[in-house]
Design a protein around this nucleic acid. Structure first.
Length: 668
RNA sequence: GCCACUGUAGCUCAGUAGGUAGAGCAGCUGACUUGUAAUCAGCAGGUCGGGGGAUCAAUACCCUCCAGUGGCUCCA
C-alpha cells in the first residue's frame, strides 16, 4: 500500500487530473489499480501509486514486459507472444518463435530502448469478447486467454502502444518513456503452460527500474550473487569436486570440504544430544521388498538406484533414512513409558535426479540429511514439536547470527481428500480403514463387510494439524498456513531462511507421518494395556549437509565463521630467517586446537597473500624481525584490518571465537 | 525427462573462414632473502568431452551419445 495520503476524486474525473509528477504511475482506488488516464468509477478517495513502491515496480515491469513483446514482434513479425508477467525482481515474456541467441537479445534490448526513447503513449481500450477474438486471431495463446477469462457477451481491455496490442487488464505506465531503464538478462525456453507436448516457447527474462542508478545497483547485486555461487567459491576454496564423467551429480569432498562438513556434523551431534535425540547408524541399502512395503517403490521407483544380485534378489540404495530407523524401533515392543523414542543420524541418501534437474550442492544425487525420526504418543506431539522449533532457532542463530527465519504450516486441501492418506469409517459395520483413494488400484470398499459406504474421518489429521499449529503459536512464532501443501501422509512445518542477499532457502522441515506407523505396524502399549499406533515425526534441521554448505558459502561469500573455516590461521614469514620463530608460533596455535598452516615457500609476502586469499583463511599471520624480537604476531582479519598482537593473546582470542562459535570476528 | 546454450592444460580463457593448438595463473627447477592483492628465468603440461560420418586432411562441418549451465517439469 502506498503510504501517501489519499486524494479525493469525483466520479468521471480522470485520476491524472489530480496528480502531478512522473513518480506517480497509477491510482489505487477501492483496492483496485487504475491507469492514470482512466476515470474514477465513483466518488471516493484514491491513493497515488508511486513508481518506487512495490505496486509501482510491478506495474513498471509489467509494462516493460509489453515493451519487450513490442520489440520482439517488431523485429520478428512471425513471433507470437503468449504471456509476460512481472516477477519478484523483473519480468519475463514467453513468446512462440524460433530460438534466438544472446546477440539477438542485444538487438531486442536496443529496440526496446529505441521504443522507450520515442515516448509512445500506452492506451487502454475496451472491446467485446468477439472483437477481441477477431483482433487476436492467429495467436491461439491470446485467444485461449480471451476464451478463458472473458465470459461470452462480456468485454475486456487491450493495451495499445504504437502498432503493438496486447490483451491485458493492466494497469500500465502512461507511455514508453517510463521504460528507459530496462535490461534483458537471459533467454531460456519453456512450453506453453509448461506442458510437455505443447508448443515451444522462448522465455526472455529482463528487469526494469524507475531510474538508472537502481538498475545499476541491481545489476551489481546480481553480479555479486553470481560470484558467490557456491560452485565457484567451492572451487576457489578447494572444498569439493564434481567429476562429471565418473559420478555426475555426486559431490566428492576434499580434505577442507570435509572439515566444514565435520564441524557441521559435530555441532548437530551436540544439539541432538542436548535435545534427547539418540544417534543410530543404518545401512545404505535394503531389499526391494522393504521399499515395496514402505510405498517408495511404487511412487519413486524411477528415481531410485535399483539393482539385482546374481541370485535374483533385488536391492535399492536408500532414498530415505526412515526405514532404517523404523527397523531399529521395531526391534522390541514399546511401552508408553518408553516414548518418545527419537533416533537421529547424518544419513546419506541417493536419488536419481533427472539429468536436467541436477546441479551443484543444491541438487545433488547424493546428500546427507541430518535426519531424525520421533516415535510419539499423540499427547507428546505439541511438546516435541515445540522442542524442535527451539532447536531450529538455536541452530540457525548460531550459524547465521540472528537468522531471518520464516515458518510455513502446510495443511491438507479439504476439497481434495482423495489425495491424502486418511481414515474412513464404514457406515454399515463401523469398521475403520486407512486409505488413500488417488493411489489405490483396489476398489474402495470396507474390507470387513464389503460396503462402499465409507465416510472420511479427519480427526487424526485435525489433531496433528492442530498440534503443529499450537506448537508454533506457543513458541510465539509467526507463520503462514498453506492449504493443500501437506504431504499425502501428513501435515508439516517448513522453515525458510533468508540469506545475506535476501534470497529465501528452504531449510528445516517437521513432518507428521501417518503412513509409516500403519504400513509398518509401529505400535506401543498404552497405560490401559492396549496396542496403539505411534505418531511418527520426520525432522531435519539443516535439511542436508550439502545444502547448508552451499547456503553458508553463498551467504558468507566463503568467509565462514572461524569455527567452520577449514584454514583458521595461515602463517608465513617475511624471510626464512624467521622460520624458526614462525614454527614456534605455529606449534603454539596448533596445540590450542586451531587449524593452522605454515607457509615456508620462498615467495614474496604479497604473492603469498594473493595466492592464499581465495582459500579464505580466517586470519593471516605475518612474521618478521619485529615480531620475533617482540614475541608478537602481525595479524590480518577477514575485513583486511591489521594488528600486532602478543602470540598468546592472539591464540586465546581465536580459541574463544571458535569455542563460542562466533559468526563475526572481533574488531581490530 | 523437455527446450536453449555451452564443452580447448589443474584454473581462467584465446585460436583455427578445415592443414592435429596458444597465453596468463597454478605445478616443477633455478636465481632473488623478500613486510601484507602477482620478483625473474627456464621446464613440463592438451588424442581441443566420447563415438561415428562426409573430406586427401577435423578441435573446427554433419550425426549421435555424454556432461555442464540457464529455464521448464520434478524435488518423498
Amino acid at each position: 500500500m502506498s503510504d501517501r495520503k489519499g486524494l479525493r476524486i469525483k466520479k468521471g474525473e480522470k485520476f491524472s487530473s489530480k496528480i502531478s509528477g512522473r513518480n506517480i504511475i497509477a491510482a489505487s482506488f477501492e483496492g483496485k489499480l487504475y491507469d492514470l488516464d482512466t476515470t474514477a468509477p465513483s466518488d471516493g478517495i484514491f491513493f497515488p501509486v508511486n513508481v518506487d513502491s512495490q505496486e509501482g515496480l510491478t506495474i513498471l515491469r509489467h509494462s516493460a514486459a509489453h515493451l519487450l513483446a513490442h520489440a520482439v514482434t517488431t523485429l520478428y513479425p512471425s513471433a507470437l507472444p503468449n504471456a509476460g508477467p512481472p516477477t519478484d525482481d523483473g519480468f519475463y515474456y514467453d513468446i512462440h518463435m524460433d530460438s534466438i541467441s544472446s546477440d539477438d537479445l542485444h538487438k531486442i534490448e536496443e529496440k526496446m530502448h529505441e521504443l522507450a526513447e520515442k515516448s509512445i503513449s500506452i492506451r487502454r481500450e475496451e472491446f467485446s469478447r468477439d472483437d477481441l477474438l477477431k483482433m487476436f486471431q492467429g495467436n491461439r495463446y491470446k485467444t485461449d486467454k480471451i476464451l478463458e477469462n472473458v465470459p461470452p457477451g462480456g468485454s475486456s481491455s487491450v493495451y495499445k502502444q504504437g502498432d503493438f496490442v496486447d490483451f491485458c487488464t493492466g494497469p500500465h505506465v502512461p507511455d514508453t518513456s517510463y521504460l528507459k531503464n530496462v535490461k534483458l538478462l537471459s533467454i531460456s525456453s519453456t512450453t506453453y503452460h509448461g506442458l510437455k507436448d505443447e508448443d515451444k516457447m522462448v522465455r526472455i527474462y529482463g528487469t526494469a527500474f524507475p531510474d538508472e542508478k537502481s538498475l545499476r545497483n541491481y545489476l551489481k547485486m546480481r553480479e555479486e550473487a553470481m560470484k558467490r555461487d557456491h560452485r565457484i567459491i567451492g572451487q576457489e576454496m578447494d572444498l569439493f569436486v564434481f567429476n562429471s564423467e565418473r559420478a555426475p551429480g555426486f559431490p566428492l569432498y576434499t580434505p577442507d570440504g570435509t572439515v566444514i562438513r565435520n564441524e557441521l556434523i559435530s555441532f548437530m551431534r551436540a544439539k541432538n544430544s542436548e535435545y534427547g535425540w539418540e544417534e543410530v547408524s543404518t545401512p545404505h541399502l535394503f531389499r526391494d521388498s522393504m521399499w515395496k512395503q514402505s510405498g517408495h517403490y511404487a511412487k519413486y521407483r524411477d528415481s531410485m538406484y535399483l539393482f539385482q544380485m546374481e541370485d535374483g534378489t533385488g536391492y535399492a540404495i536408500k532414498p530415505m533414512n526412515c526405514p532404517g530407523h523404523i527397523t531399529i524401533f521395531q526391534r522390541e515392543m514399546h511401552s508408553f513409558r518408553d516414548l518418545p523414542v527419537k533416533y537421529c543420524e547424518p544419513g546419506t541418501v541417493y536419488r536419481y535426479e533427472k539429468s536436467g534437474e541436477v546441479g551443484g550442492l543444491t541438487r545433488p544425487r547424493m546428500f546427507t540429511i541430518d535426519d531424525g525420526h520421533a516415535f510419539l504418543s499423540q499427547d507428546q506431539l505439541v511438546g516435541e514439536i515445540r522442542k524442535m522449533l527451539r532447536m531450529i532457532r538455536e541452530t540457525f542463530d548460531t550459524i547465521f547470527g540472528n537468522a531471518d527465519l520464516s515458518f510455513d504450516l502446510s495443511v491438507m486441501d479439504t476439497t481434495a481428500l482423495d489425495n491424502y492418506l486418511i481414515t474412513y469409517s464404514c457406515n454399515s459395520c463401523g469398521h475403520k480403514i486407512e486409505f488413500r483413494k488417488s493411489s489405490a488400484d483396489n476398489s474402495f470398499q470396507c474390507p470387513n463387510c464389503g460396503s462402499s459406504d465409507l465416510k472420511p474421518d479427519l480427526s487424526t489429521w485435525d489433531s496433528a494439524t492442530n498440534a503443529l499449529r499450537e506448537a508454533l503459536e506457543e513458541e510465539g512464532i509467526n507463520f503462514r498456513t498453506l492449504e493443500g501443501e501437506a504431504a499425502f501422509y501428513g501435515p508439516k512445518i517448513d522453515v525458510h531462511l533468508k540469506d545475506a542477499l535476501g534470497r529465501s532457502w528452504q531449510m528445516s522441515t517437521i513432518q507428521v507421518d501417518f503412513n509409516f506407523p500403519l504400513n509398518f505396524e509401529l505400535l506401543y502399549i498404552t497405560s490401559g494395556g492396549e496396542k496403539k499406533h505411534v505418531v511418527m515425526l520426520h525432522r531435519a534441521i539443516y535439511g542436508s549437509y550439502e545444502r547448508i554448505m552451499a547456503i553458508l558459502l553463498e551467504n558468507y561469500a566463503g568467509n565462514l565463521p572461524t569455527w567452520l573455516t577449514p584454514l583458521q590461521v595461515y602463517i608465513t614469514s617475511v624471510s626464512d630467517r624467521y622460520n624458526d620463530y614462525a614454527m614456534k608460533v605455529r606449534d603454539m596455535i596448533q596445540k590450542a586446537g586451531v587449524r593452522v598452516t605454515l607457509d615456508l615457500s620462498k615467495e614474496t609476502i604479497s604473492k603469498k597473500i594473493k595466492l592464499i586469499r581465495p582459500r579464505r583463511p580466517s586470519y593471516i599471520v605475518i612474521i618478521g624481525e619485529k615480531e620475533e624480537t617482540e614475541g608478537t604476531v602481525s595479524v590480518r582479519n577477514r575485513k583486511g584490518a591489521q594488528k600486532t598482537l602478543g602470540t598468546k593473546a592472539f591464540t586465546e582470542m581465536i580459541m574463544e571465537e571458535i569455542r563460542e562459535r562466533k559468526n563475526t570476528q572481533a574488531d581490530f
